[in-house]
Design a protein around this nucleic acid. Sequence first.
DNA 1: AATGCCGTCAACCGCCTTTAG
DNA 2: GCTAAAGGCGGTTGACGGCAT
Length: 308
Amino acid sequence: MEEMKKGPWKAEEDEVLINHVNKYGPRDWSSIRSKGLLQRTGKSCRLRWVNKLRPNLKNGVKFSAEEERTVIELQAQFGNKWARIATYLPGRTDNDVKNFWSSRRKRLARILQTPTPPPNSQKNTMEGPALRDVPSLEAPKFSSSTDEESSSKTQSCSSPYIENLATIRMVPLPELLNPNLLNFEQNQLRVEFIPTEKNPCNDSQLQLSFPNIPQPQSELALPVESQEFIGRLGNSDFLDWFGGHTNASELGDDAQIPIVLPCFGQGNCQNGEERENGNSVTTPDSFIDDFPMDMFDQLEPLPSPSEW
DNA sequence: AATGCCGTCAACCGCCTTTAG
DNA sequence: GCTAAAGGCGGTTGACGGCAT
């Protein structure tokens, strides 16, 4: 019995496979082996063709914002039916969609990792009035040390930018971290950090802009949690999370919510690359990407995606 | 420069469905 | 209708490269 070849495909093998498809069409995969053309299983041949050799594939091209949104909406609608979702994305395979989705899930899972905090390790250098009122959310720690290490290392804020972002935890983060919400396009939810001239540290303001809150095209387009989140953007209770001084009725298109940010820790709020033109603009996705990996260590974990 | 971590992607595995005899 | 082979699909793994330390 001959050994089946596994692992990466060589150019010569691809050529044989392409010749076979040109001759017989994308079928009879098993005959490739039975004819002695390749020492690959029929399944392996098919997979290679479908995922890499088929014409018009967008190999090596990142998902566009539009494609991302499509995947998210269709995943909410169909679940993990990657092959079905891929039919809506020309040039994309089910494997592409699957990998894209699992990457996102991994990243989210890492952000939401919640190691059990060791006793007395909660000395909170970020503590401020805003943080105290947040039920079930504990102040983050900003060192990169592990739990074991944290007892012997001083917790510090290496980035003043991050220090000020601490208050962003007032946002109901679990909802913001729902991957279905991480993908608002850049002009749909904007977080701006605006140090004031008088005192760039203590009087810094965070402005949240909602230029165009997206409305799901159907009830199925977004999971209930996402719809609730969007709906809550116009709710005064929700706005109270951001400082309690904003009237929901003031929210229109392109509404901005100023928030006074206490400057926690001892960092200098003026340095940092984000200070171009005095402003820092980011989007939810990149915004979260900029956080240190353990920033959300103390957050309650989200339900698994299957429970959304 | 070495090492470790993380994200991405290609490919395999196992299960389910479809098809042909 | 039954059975085996083939095809399809989703989950998972491992290699690899980039980046931070």
